Amino acid sequence: MSARALPYRPHNHDTCVTQALTDARTICQDRNARLTPTRERVLELIWQSHKPLGAYDVLAQLSDDGHNAAPPTVYRALDFLQQNGLVHRIASLNAFIGCTHAGEHHTGMFLICQGCGNVLELTAPSVSGAIKAATEAESFALDDITLEIAGLCPRCQSERGEEGKTGAPGNE
C-alpha cells in the first residue's frame, strides 16, 4: 500500500485517514472479509490522529457519534482490524494504532514519543532479520515480532531544548 507521512512532521492528515480507509476497503474486498460500517468507523477513529487509542476511547467516540455500541462490539471490531493487518496493538499502552503497511506481512516496530504520544511505525528489515537469525540460532519457533521503542520525536526534542534554553523549571 502507499507510504504515509511522519506523524511529527506537518502533513495533510485527512490524506492519512482517506488512504487508510481506501486500503482497508481494498484489502477486505481482496480477502472477502466484511468491512462493516462499525468496523470502518473504528478504523477511521484510530486513524484520526497518530496517537494510539484504547478500546474505551474508541467506545466513547462512537457514543459521541450516536452509535449504541457496547465494549464487545468495539473489541470485535478491533480484533477484525488487527487480524486483517489494518491496525496494530501497542501492548505497553494497551492501545491501537493504524498500520502504515496494511496488507503486507511485516515486523511491527514502533517509535513511541513520550512527549506528545505520537507513534511512528518503523521499517527496519535489518533489525527484523537479526531477530529472526537469533531465534533460529536458538531453535526457537518465531511466531511474531513486535518492538516498542520509547523516546522523543524530533519536535519534542526541539521543544525540550528550547525550554532548557529559557530556564524552564525541571531543566536545570
Rank of each mutant, 00 (worst) to 15 (best):
A69R: 11
N68P: 11
T26P: 01
N32A: 11
A70S: 13
V58C: 09
A70E: 14
H50T: 03
D79Y: 04
L21C: 03
H11R: 14
A95F: 03
A33G: 04
R41P: 10
A69N: 07
R31I: 11
V17F: 03
L78D: 01
Y75T: 14
L21W: 00
Q29W: 00
D57T: 13
Y56I: 06
Y75S: 11
G54C: 09
T38L: 15
G85L: 13
A69I: 09
S92M: 07
Q19N: 07
L59T: 07
E44K: 15
L53S: 04
Q61W: 03
T22V: 11
G54P: 01
D65C: 12
A77W: 02
I46G: 09
N12K: 05
F96P: 01
R76Q: 11
T22K: 09
A95C: 13
R39Q: 10
E44G: 14
W47A: 15
Q48V: 07
P52N: 06
C16T: 15
L62T: 10
G85H: 10
C16S: 11
A60L: 14
T15W: 07
R41H: 15
H13C: 05
E44L: 12
N12W: 08
A69Q: 06
A33R: 09
D64Y: 10
A20D: 01
A60P: 03
L62V: 14
V42D: 03
C16P: 00
L78H: 01
S92G: 07
L78S: 06
V58K: 03
V87N: 00
F80N: 05
R34M: 15
L86G: 13
T22F: 04
C28T: 03
S92C: 09
L86S: 11
I27S: 08
W47H: 13
H13D: 01
A95I: 14
L86E: 00
G54R: 09
L21S: 12
L21T: 11
L93H: 12
G66D: 00
A91K: 07
Q29C: 08
H67T: 06
A91R: 13
R25P: 00
S49F: 00
D23R: 02
C16Y: 04
Q83P: 10
R41F: 13
F96K: 03
H67C: 10
G54K: 15
S49V: 03
L53C: 12
C16I: 15
H88V: 01
L35P: 06
D64S: 07
L86W: 11
H11G: 15
T73H: 14
D65L: 06
L53G: 01
D23F: 08
L81D: 06
L93R: 14
T22R: 05
D30E: 15
C28H: 05
P52A: 14
G66M: 04
T36P: 07
G54D: 04
F80L: 09
N94Y: 10
L59K: 04
A70H: 14
Q19S: 13
K51D: 00
P71A: 14
P72V: 10
A95E: 03
L81N: 04
T73K: 06
D30T: 14
L45F: 08
R41K: 15
S92P: 02
A24K: 04
P52M: 00
I46R: 04
A91M: 06
R89W: 04
S63T: 15
